[in-house]
Amino acid sequence: MLMVTDITAWHGSAQILFGVSLVVRPGEVVALMGRNGMGKSTLIRALMGLCRIRSGSVTWQGREIHRLPPYRIARLGIGLVPEGRQVFPTLTVRENLLAVAANYGQLEEPFTLEHVFALFPRLAERPGHLGRELSGGEQQMLAIARALMINPRLLLLDEAGEGLAPLVREEIWQGLDHLRRRGLAILVVDRDIDALLRISDRLLFMEKGSIVWQDEHPFPCLDSSVKLRYLGV
């Protein structure tokens, strides 16, 4: 469904991505891990069109998208949950969700307000609260819910559980697990390896701008030496 072939990207004069290739199949959850500064966020931004790809290609449902502006990519059915959440601070929860509602992925059973509220009951409890009044975890739920309201076929999550309390993070993971069972493809960046192992079909490790190691569920090749080598844990 999403095919990334040998892409490179620069940040000013510094090269960040050195020929990254990966595939996300329909309904598949792919987890992307790696230490800081290895290019995970840049890769997500590049896929979304927020960072220019110098060479290589990205095809989405058979169509080249790596030269499209971000809003066109979103309209083709790719939703982003950005790093740092970026909810609309002066809009209420309900407004945050309704402001962008659309069915870009042309899903037969599109997400509605009821669906995302059922997914994250905490949001349903405070539909009239302003975005800035929410806790970090609630904001993250809102950011995910907002991305779902454009009804993507692929969800990109950058640092999904960053800076959240363990219990809240668990709610986020459960929400993602639910989305996986609903058949949504997800590419998620995070550092919580135990949670990612539970919900992912595939695990990729990035190092210095390339994907250096990967394994599929139930991850037979993953042992402590691999974790130490690529994650430092």
Binding site: M48, G49, L50, P69, P70, Y71, A74, R75, G79, L80, P82, Q86, F88, A99, V100, A102, Y104, R146, A147, I150
Partner: peptide, 20 residues
Amino acid sequence: RVLVGSRENEQRLQVLGLAT
């Protein structure tokens, strides 16, 4: 609303499918 939103953060609107 889109205009005010793009004053605050243009990329946020773009990734949600709005041609700012």
